[in-house]
Structure formats: structure tokens, C-alpha cells
Nucleic acid binder design. Structure first.
Length: 286
DNA sequence: AGCTCACCCTGGACGC
DNA sequence: TGCGTCCAGGGTGAGC
């Protein structure tokens, strides 16, 4: 992903760095929607089927000729509705990127290219191939998906109920469990718990109601902040790798082990929970 | 029930 | 310079 220079069609896509979580996928949805809605899929070139699950052999045959009528997001999935109740589902995994317009600067690992009427092209690039692409008429194929954290359903009372039903899980694992709450990955779970002043390794069932309840606004706020910075920096970015800059600077704990807490100056600690890097301030978080 | 770990995969960081 | 090794991580599934 790189600066646009040819002055042809606009280049939009996910940031060049970072693992896509809710804000990244939602930003992607907002930015590609105007370029693909109403467009007919003229051709689909599947160059590499071996993603997390192999791309079905008949994907191209089933998609070509259909028109993209809407672009939605559910959890970290992007759903391109192609009529007839069919959803073209794309998950970016951890290195997946989607862009419309000019091809990505680096054409390696471009696994799928869709040609749209009007001359636009949609590129799916995913070096690590942890992504997913399928066509389904049943959203239940995506598995059990929990509450959207920015929705009204994700309330203090709802989170409290989750902690009653899953008392022994760590609060970080609970926030990242897609069956309970969707779209929250490692970065935002760490950041939200910092903002809530709670250690990631705390057992969900041992938190007070007040502690549980302050996670909700903390998580919503960090997601909104990320959404705002991504939204503002994506559409007209010019630097080779400047898109992530703004949000990375605002991270309080993630990937900051050994650095000073921005609130109290204490050295940020790193542990591992569920096999994922976990960061917290030993003073601000209790 | 819920933990840890392995797996899928590659680029980047690091050590020699 | 260049090669080998390690690591990250979303989602899923196995085993404890």
C-alpha cells in the first residue's frame, strides 16, 4: 500500500500495518463501499486458494455477473451483499488487506482480484494467508458471534451478565472471546483494560460490578478513537506508511513493554495470556 | 468450563 | 552480506 501517484482511480484500503480489528474493518467498509456498491463483478481471478480455509473452487463462477448491492461489517468480517441473499464474506486474518483502484504497491501475495464494471478493481492481498473468503447465504456460517461492542446491546449490564456466566476466565480473554463480544483483538483489549484501570489477568468473576461497568465506556471510547483516526487518515493518505502513525502514537500499553507509562511513568510490563502478548501498567491497573 | 498449546504462514528482527 | 532462528498473531481445535 503506498501513496497514490498515478492520479487515476482513488486508492483506498486498509492500513499498511497492524492487525485488523473492528475499527480497521469498519474503516475499510466505509472507504470501499462507495467504490463497489452498484458495481457488477465482471471477472474474479483467484490466484491462491490456500487461505485459512481454501477458497471454494466455484467462488468465481458463483460471483461473476452479480452486483454488489451493499457492504456491511459483522464482527471482523466484511460482507459484500451480492443479491439473492448471498454474502461475499471476507476476513482479513492478521495480514489481509483490501484495496480498490490502483493495484497495491507490492503485488506479491495478491490472492484475489475482482474486476468490476466501470473499470475498478478490488485487490485482496494477504501475505500470511490467515484470511478467509467465502460465499454464503447464511451468516451463521461465520460461527457464534457475540455483541457488537459499539452497539447499544453492549451495555454495562450485559457485560456484567457475561462475567456472571464466565467467572473464571481472565477479563482479557473474555473481552477477546468472539462468541461473547466481537471485533476486539489484542490491541484494543489491552488498551481498554488500561483505560479501565484493570489488570488483564484478573478473573472476570472477581471484579466488582463497578469495575466491570467501567470497562464498557473504556472499550467503546478506545474503539471510537481508533475509528476516528483511521477514518481521517485513510482516504487521502500520501505517506508510504503514515496511516498507522496517528493511532500508534496514542497507544498507552500495547507493544510498550519496558517503556514509561504515559500516566504515572512506571515501566509497562508484558506477560502472556492465551498465547498473546499482554501489556499493562503495574501501578495504574489493579 | 477453561486453560495452554499447536497449527496455519511469512516478514521482520536479531545473532553470529 | 547472509544465513539461520525466533516471534507475532486471529481463529480453531486438541488435549489436559
Amino acid at each position: 500500500m503506498r501513496a497514490l501517484s498515478t492520479g487515476r482511480s482513488p486508492v483506498v484500503g486498509a492500513p499498511g500495518a497492524g492487525v485488523p480489528e473492528l475499527p480497521e474493518v469498519e474503516t475499510l467498509r466505509r472507504t470501499i463501499a462507495p467504490h463497489v456498491i452498484g458495481r457488477r463483478i465482471l471477472a474474479l481471478d483467484v490466484r491462491e486458494r490456500r487461505l485459512r480455509r481454501p477458497i471454494a473452487a466455484d467462488l468465481a463462477a458463483r460471483l461473476v455477473g452479480r452486483t454488489i448491492v451493499d457492504v456491511r461489517r459483522r464482527a471482523k468480517y466484511l460482507l459484500l451483499d451480492v443479491g439473492g441473499g448471498l454474502h461475499w464474506v471476507i476476513h482479513l486474518g492478521m495480514s489481509g488487506r483490501l484495496c480498490v483502484g490502483d493495484p497495491p504497491a507490492d503485488l506479491s501475495h495478491v490472492h484475489v482480484v475482482a474486476a468490476l464494471d466501470g473499470g475498478g478493481r478490488l485487490y485482496f492481498r494477504d501475505p500470511r494467508r490467515f484470511g478467509l473468503m467465502l460465499l454464503t447465504s447464511d451468516e451463521r456460517d461465520l460461527g457464534v458471534l457475540g455483541l457488537e461492542p459499539l452497539g447499544d446491546g453492549f451495555s454495562p449490564a450485559a457485560l456484567w451478565q457475561m462475567t456472571r456466566r464466565h467467572r473464571r476466565v481472565t477479563v482479557k480473554s473474555l473481552l477477546m472471546d468472539q462468541r461473547l463480544i466481537v471485533g476486539v483483538g489484542n490491541i484494543y483489549a489491552n488498551e481498554a483494560l488500561f483505560d479501565a484501570g484493570l489488570r488483564p489477568g484478573r478473573r472476570a468473576g472477581r471484579l466488582s460490578r463497578a469495575q466491570v461497568e467501567r470497562i464498557v465506556p473504556a472499550l467503546k471510547a478506545v474503539l471510537h478513537r481508533a475509528l476516528a483516526s483511521r477514518g481521517s487518515s485513510l482516504l487521502d493518505y500520501r505517506d508510504a506508511d503514515g496511516e498507522m502513525g496517528e493511532f500508534q502514537r496514542s497507544l498507552r500499553v500495547y507493544e510498550r513493554a519496558g517503556e514509561a507509562c504515559k500516566v504515572c511513568g512506571t515501566s509497562i510490563r508484558r506477560t502472556v495470556i492465551g498465547g498473546r502478548g499482554t501489556f499493562f501498567c503495574p501501578l495504574c491497573q489493579t
